[in-house]
Amino acid sequence: MAADIVSWIFILLGCFFLVVGGIGVLRLPDVYTRMHAAGITDTMATGLLVVGMAFQAGFTLVTVKLLLIVLFTFFASPTASHALAQAALSAGIKPQLADDRRPGAKGGAPSEGEDR
């Protein structure tokens, strides 16, 4: 019974992160911020949902397969995100910056209290 409650909590938290990531992919302004939203669903939602399902399954072979899935996702998702960001950047897509603090950059509003 306690395992049921814990798995409820994990799965509902995972659903929350899923929907938040989906809204982020729809609404954020450029590729890099959309990758951030997709990364939330890849790590938090996958991890929480898999932990919730593992609480349902108990100590069986199913749990081992679930842990294999989450292990592979934790290696594959950052690798794919890195390759995608590098491909987009080398294809010439500029990140949208609200405040560009690099020396000589135009368009950034001067910010108070920053000495970088």
């Binding site: 899923l18 990531g21 992919v25 590729v31 959309r34 990758m35 997709a38 669903t41 890849d42 939602a45 996958t46 949902l49 898999v50 399902m53 679930l66 899935i69 996702t73 998702s77 794919a80 995608l84 491909a87 987009a88 294809a91 897509i93």
Partner: peptide, 19 residues
């Protein structure tokens, strides 16, 4: 690249949906 992000995310969610 937006499409690739979306398709990658769709694939991961298809995996979770199957589970």
């Amino acid at each position: 690249y937006d499409r690739i992000v979306a398709v990658n995310m769709f694939g991961t969610k298809a995996l979770l949906l199957i589970a």
